[in-house]
Design a protein around this nucleic acid. Structure first.
Length: 188
DNA sequence: TTTGTGATGCACT
DNA sequence: GTGCATCACAAAA
C-alpha cells in the first residue's frame, strides 16, 4: 500500500482494496466492500469540479476524503487520481471488536461495519480525518495473503450513473452492507 | 421479506 | 428550497 497503489483510477483501486485489512487507530478489519467514483462520473462529488467539501479529491493520491452523509453519518474515501476516490462501504471486523461495539452501541458483528456510516462510527472516523495521509498513523494497511475472489455490482444509494458496475465485494462475505448477485471471479 | 419514514447538516440551485 | 455515496425502526404483506 504505497503511493503507486493509489495513483491509479478508482476502479482498479476499489477492486484491489478488497481483502486488504484496514486499521484506524488500532481498530478495523478486512475491507469486504468498496465503490469507485470517477472524475467524469455524475454520481461523484467531484463531477462539478472542486468545492470546499471535495477539495481533497483533487489533491495528491493516498489521502482520506471524509464527508458528512445525510447530515448524520460520516463516509470514508481513499483519494486516487485527481477527482477520483474509493468509498469504503464495509469491513469484516478483526481488531478492536469490543471498542467498535461500544462506539456503535450494539454488538451484532454482521452489522458492526456493514455500510459506510457504520464503518466510520465503529472506527471513530470524523471530519478530523479529512485530508490525512494514508501512509502513516492513524491509518495502517495489510495486504491479503492470497488473492481474494471479487464480485461486482451496481453502486448503492445513488441516482446518477446507476448502471456502472463499480461496486466491489469479497465473494461470499456475510459482512457486506447488501448481498451481491452472482459468483466471484479472481482479481486480474 | 419488502417498503416507508424520520433524523439531521450542508452543498448547491 | 431541494437533494443527498445513510441508518434504524416500524409497518405492511
Amino acid at each position: 500500500m504505497d503511493q503507486q497503489f493509489f495513483d491509479r483510477n478508482s476502479i482498479e483501486v476499489a477492486r484491489d482494496l478488497i481483502g486488504v485489512e484496514l486499521d484506524v487507530s488500532g481498530l478495523g478489519g478486512i475491507i469486504v466492500e468498496t465503490e469507485a467514483y470517477e472524475p467524469d462520473d455524475p454520481a461523484s462529488h467531484s463531477f462539478r469540479g472542486p468545492t470546499p467539501r471535495n477539495s481533497v479529491m483533487f489533491g495528491a493520491p493516498g489521502h482520506a476524503y471524509v464527508y458528512r452523509s445525510y447530515g448524520i453519518h460520516w463516509c470514508l474515501n481513499f483519494v486516487c487520481r485527481p477527482g477520483s476516490a474509493v468509498l469504503v462501504r464495509a469491513l469484516q471486523p478483526v481488531r478492536g471488536l469490543a471498542e467498535m461495539e461500544k462506539r456503535r452501541g450494539r454488538a451484532d458483528p454482521l452489522l458492526l461495519c456493514a455500510g459506510p456510516g457504520r464503518v466510520c462510527q465503529a472506527l471513530g472516523i470524523t471530519i478530523e480525518h479529512n485530508g490525512l495521509s494514508l501512509f502513516g498513523p492513524p491509518f495502517a494497511f495489510s495486504p491479503p495473503q492470497v488473492p481474494p475472489l471479487i464480485v461486482t455490482g451496481r453502486r448503492i444509494g445513488i441516482s446518477q450513473a446507476v448502471d456502472q458496475p463499480w461496486r466491489f465485494g469479497l465473494s461470499g462475505s456475510p459482512y457486506v452492507s447488501k448481498r451481491f448477485v452472482g459468483r466471484g471471479v479472481p482479481a486480474p
